[in-house]
Design a protein around this nucleic acid. Structure first.
Length: 260
DNA sequence: TGCCATGTTAGTAT
DNA sequence: CATACTAACATGGC
């Protein structure tokens, strides 16, 4: 479930493995994962090198020595994998690049919700897809301004990639737990102090998750991740963790701790 | 066996 | 245009 911290980790991994090597071939088992024609990917990637990456939210932009930028989105079940022997292709490595050092790069995607695209400009893409600045770098001013026009539940707004790019379902629950905010709290009923509390919690959750390599088990003991599953008990109140639907998404929270 | 999960996108409705 | 709701996408895991 790659959200901002996981994709950050993927970026670090990719930066340390496949940059500055010439791509000698590409293989794609399922063309549905490609947003452009397969021939375009071959044309613009084979013979080129990947130069540097940039992450905005859950999107990873990979610059090349050619005219195009490769965009990767990992969907719900994606991850990168770098390996040597062609026989070691991962089971769900649906897209593979081969490099001139004999190593391979697989874009693993168990449930095929991830995809690749080829674009001309990151700035234009960000604009056209309504992506906000990455949540890790987002300013409080921008966050506050995005919220000011909204009237719906805070959790729905947190999941909106035009508000805080990179926040996904588990992060939204964790942020609201840390901020002591009910997921269905209406934006219009939130004070500036409330908004700041959510913003600060968002920054904290992002940094803690990145520090721990998005490894949930090593998160602090008062993080919701540890008792998010059913039968969980709130660290602070000892009360139950409840599961509801907000915006069609499974939402876990502590009713005693997170008041409306 | 059948439901659930994840993130985005598209379609429709208000 | 903003917002909201639903379905679709794919498929492993429980």
């Amino acid at each position: 479930m790659p959200e901002l911290p996981e994709v950050h980790g993927y970026k670090v991994y990719i930066d340390s493995t496949i940059l500055h090597k010439t791509i000698i071939s590409m293989d794609c088992r399922d063309k549905k994962l490609l947003k452009k024609a397969y021939g375009d990917f071959e044309k613009f990637l084979v013979g080129e090198q990947l130069t540097f990456t940039r992450r905005i939210g859950k999107y990873l932009f990979v610059n090349t020595t050619g005219p195009k930028v490769l965009v990767m989105h990992f969907g719900m079940t994606g991850r990168p994998s770098y390996y040597k022997e062609a026989d070691d292709r991962p089971k769900f490595g649906h897209i593979v690049l081969a490099f001139d050092n004999d190593f391979h790069f697989a874009f693993e995607n168990k449930r095929k919700f991830g995809w690749w695209d080829l674009i001309d400009s990151i700035a234009d893409y960000k604009q056209d897809h309504g992506l906000s600045d990455d949540a890790r770098e987002l300013s409080f001013e921008d966050f506050k301004n995005s919220l000011s026009t909204r009237k719906t539940d805070i959790k729905k707004v947190l999941l909106d990639q035009s508000v805080a790019a990179g926040v996904g379902n588990w992060m939204a629950d964790e942020i609201l737990y840390q901020a002591k905010m009910h997921p269905q709290k209406k934006i219009e009923n939130m004070t500036e102090t409330d908004v700041k509390a959510v913003f600060d919690a968002m920054k904290k959750v992002i940094e803690v998750a990145i520090e721990n390599d998005a490894h949930y088990d090593s998160f602090p003991e008062d993080f919701l991740m540890h008792f998010r599953e059913k039968e969980g008990t709130c660290f602070h109140t000892g009360g139950p963790i409840e599961k509801i639907k907000v915006g069609g998404r499974a939402t876990y929270f502590s009713p005693k701790w997170q008041e409306k």
